[in-house]
Amino acid sequence: MEQTVTTANLDATVAALGDAVNDVRVFRDEVTLITTKGRVVEVLTHLRDAQHFDMLTDETCVDYLPKEPRFAILYQLYSTSRNIRVRVKVMLSEYDRSIPTAAGVWIAANWLEREIYDLFGINFENHPDLRRIMMPPGWEGHPLLKENPVKVEEVAFTFNRERVEADKPRAQE
């Protein structure tokens, strides 16, 4: 039987973390702990050790362009012994795209953080192996940033077909 963390049974956690947690948001029984990048490793370590959140199901990033702070790093945690879930959220500024790594807390964070680095260009401090994982090694830029265009090729209609065809690269024998 699936159940989510409610504020009632998380009060002790929030109290133990003290001012490391800035805000607790509850939406449809899903709990999100908002913290800062300076204390995120401390919060994650506490959740793993004291609250038995032994599994990092996902770590991902959201680009909120043009808002500031622009990025959100999200950690989706699951406790296999308690069968509950919690989300930890850290906002990052556009002008300081770095955050301490969680690879020392859960080893699963290693590749997830490589993916975020690859697609969003967030720098994970003290990451053991921070290089691209999805895109080819020589790729320039970070494709999931919102300043990139959604489409790479203009869609050809009758009025622009000749121009689109002329711009298209063609292979040689």
């Binding site: 895109m135 494709p143 990139n148 959604v150 489409k151 790479v152 090729e153 869609v155 298209k168 690269p169 063609r170 292979a171 040689q172 024998e173």
Partner: peptide, 19 residues
């Protein structure tokens, strides 16, 4: 021609790389 995948990750038609 790339089909529905008009995005950064997919070649827009394999004729870009082989005849």
């Amino acid at each position: 021609c790339g089909g529905v995948f008009n995005n950064y990750a997919v070649i827009q038609g394999v004729d870009e790389i082989v005849p």
